[in-house]
């Protein structure tokens, strides 16, 4: 499984991208490899091999059906069922992630190369949406720290900025009379948050490549923060020295902070964050459960915020 490439020579520097993508499509197609399904259209889910992780929770999983049909992905509309209905139009293959900014080795990674060159892990994480609901999702991915180490950030880099694909022609929710957000969707983390072992780039869930509505082909998962920090369908990761703008913070600064740590004692100005509904639990008669500080990951991440007033830096 683990075939590490030397990170300083990219395949794209040797062979033109179209050529190697083409060749690989042909090869994988001929060999009948499961990953082939992910390459041509990116529509079919392909199985992924992933090891277990001590960071996984043993809580009951939210069903695959719910995880893949109840989504916030405003590029495809604001309805919870819009992404599942409309995200098929997103072409996820070929797909590259550009890594630039204050790094020693800026690079452009093809997602399939990232998948092949990373030790994929299953990470079963709680996901708490800022709207007051939660899920337990078996992601497949690799630590963001692994990618960061490959590009060798400079000492001046203090933050990591992320950007979603900007493709109005493939993302019908972007092309509306009043855009709900300023596009493209952008997010950011402090470098130490990005390096935390809990922070992953997910390329799959439930043992298969990501469905488009969940942010295919590659997305961020930061389990101690509200779900909107988990930027989807990433095309660019930049290392910067100043706190980067983030989409929801730009939209409503008093409601969505840069940090957006799950915190039951700091309410959203318009609703309480003290409790949450676990999706798939109880149906119509769902019982609210108390929301946990840092979404239950305080042990791993609380030290990142010592001395900070989390009421002000929400």
């Amino acid at each position: 499984m683990l075939i590490r490439r030397p990170s300083d020579i990219l395949p794209s520097e040797i062979t033109p991208r179209e050529v190697y993508l083409n060749r690989r499509q042909w090869m994988t197609g001929a060999a009948g490899l499961a990953l082939a399904a992910a390459l041509p259209g990116g529509l079919e889910a392909a199985p992924l091999q992933a090891g277990k992780s001590p960071f996984s929770t043993d809580e009951k999983l939210t069903s695959r059906e719910d995880v893949t049909s109840y989504n916030n992905f405003y590029e495809f509309g604001t309805g919870k069922d819009d992404p599942a209905a409309k995200a098929k139009s997103l072409k996820t293959s070929p797909w590259t992630v550009k890594v630039d900014g204050m790094v020693g080795k800026p690079a452009e990674f093809a997602v399939e190369d990232l998948i092949k060159s990373s030790a994929l892990e299953e990470r079963i994480y709680r996901m708490r949406c800022v709207e007051g609901w939660s899920m337990v999702i078996p992601w497949v991915g690799f630590p963001l720290a692994d990618l960061i180490k490959r590009v060798e950030p400079l000492g001046s880099a203090k933050y990591v900025a992320f950007e979603t694909a900007y493709r109005p022609e493939e993302m019908p929710g972007m092309d509306t009379l009043f855009p709900v957000l300023e596009w493209p969707y952008v997010e950011g983390l402090r470098l130490d948050e990005a390096m935390n072992p809990l922070t992953i780039l997910a390329v799959g869930l439930y043992g298969e490549t990501l469905p488009n509505q969940n942010g295919a082909p590659i997305r961020l998962v930061v389990p101690w923060k509200y779900g909107f920090k988990g930027i989807k369908s990433i095309t660019r990761i930049s290392f910067v020295d100043k706190q980067p703008p983030t989409s929801w913070n730009k939209q409503a600064p008093s409601e969505y902070g840069f940090y957006a740590n799950v915190n039951p004692s700091v309410d959203h100005p318009r609703w309480s964050q003290a409790t949450e509904r676990r999706i798939g639990e109880g149906g119509l008669f769902v019982k609210r459960r108390p929301t946990l500080m840092f979404n239950g990951y305080a042990e791993q991440v609380a030290s990142l915020y010592t001395g900070m007033d989390l009421r002000k830096l929400y």
Binding site: S69, D81, R277, L284, V286
Partner: peptide, 15 residues
């Protein structure tokens, strides 16, 4: 539909 669990992932909110 709510009783029959046909209101999606978050039936209470839907209702």
């Amino acid at each position: 539909a709510g009783i029959m669990d046909q209101l999606g992932a978050d039936p209470m909110r839907y209702l």
